[in-house]
Design a protein around this nucleic acid. Structure first.
Lengths: 146, 146
DNA sequence: TTTAGTGCAAAAGTTTTGCATGGTC
DNA sequence: GACCATGCAAAACTTTTGCACTAAA
């Protein structure tokens, strides 16, 4: 095995260059802050963490960066009940999310086999499916114990 | 067949009484406005439509009513990419949503058979699944033709 | 009559935008 | 060196809250 590319997270600079945008200090900082977060975070939360870490980043830049990265598919945008928009640095492969309703822990679910059902169901209504996402909510083992 | 209860939408008053809240004029108006909308709508949109229809309803009441009805499960709350929170009066049965990315038409998808997959996947990570929702995005026949 | 619900307006957030300046490629 | 990206601060929105008043049960 020559490389352990499979699960190794790509470096921020590579992710940015990969989608044809400039690898600025601020964008790298946002990606690194996301990499530190196991779950997800809102734009404002990320801004506050970067500031308290001493990074001189502007709020507008955080919003602009997250929108850009989300559009480019570099990060995932997930919305919780109530409409709160959060971001997360996930694997590049197709996956879904399992979140704990108590502690908001997020786990990626691989092995989605919904493609056929989605295409068929969409076609039954005259639609051509382009994407789908599943959000599973539950209670994690820690919270169940508590 | 004595009744055609199956697909007949319940009257606003019944829906409200059914979850133990008062059937006020404003709540009935919000439900009726939702019933006129085939797709989904934001709180602010519903407020504007009711106002232009001559209903003297307050913005805060619309927000409070939609939150209440959503919590009670009387209406569905769906979030589109970008975090926009919309509401829709759907059937009571478990279902998912298929939306057109062009015209935002919404269709209910019945016959969800994801229960087993969801439980199994959640259990594999130590979670107990409590709910799940699928959002399928595609292009409807009209928009594909255009 | 009692208590829940409403309207209004103010406040509290959140997100976007304009424009001069600074940093990448 | 050209052009993209940033910071700041103001503006634009969206959503929530307090409180006196009204209406449902």
């Amino acid at each position: 095995m020559a490389k352990t590319q499979a699960q190794a997270p790509a470096a921020p600079g590579e992710l940015l260059a990969g989608c044809g945008v400039r690898a600025t200090h601020q964008r790298v900082q946002v990606l690194e802050e996301l990499a530190r977060e196991a779950n997800d975070a809102t734009a404002y939360q990320l801004f506050e963490r970067l500031r308290s870490r001493g990074e001189g980043i502007g709020l507008a830049t955080v919003y602009r960066t997250l929108s850009l990265l989300s559009e480019q598919g570099v990060i995932d945008a997930l919305t919780h009940r109530g409409g709160e928009l959060c971001y997360r640095l996930c694997s590049a492969a197709h996956h879904h999310h399992l979140t704990c309703s108590e502690c908001h822990r997020v786990v990626e679910l691989d092995g989605c086999n919904l493609g056929d059902w989605v295409s068929t169901a969409a076609a039954a209504h005259g639609f051509t499916a382009t994407e789908h996402q599943v959000e599973v909510v539950g209670v994690c083992s820690d919270c169940r114990a508590a």
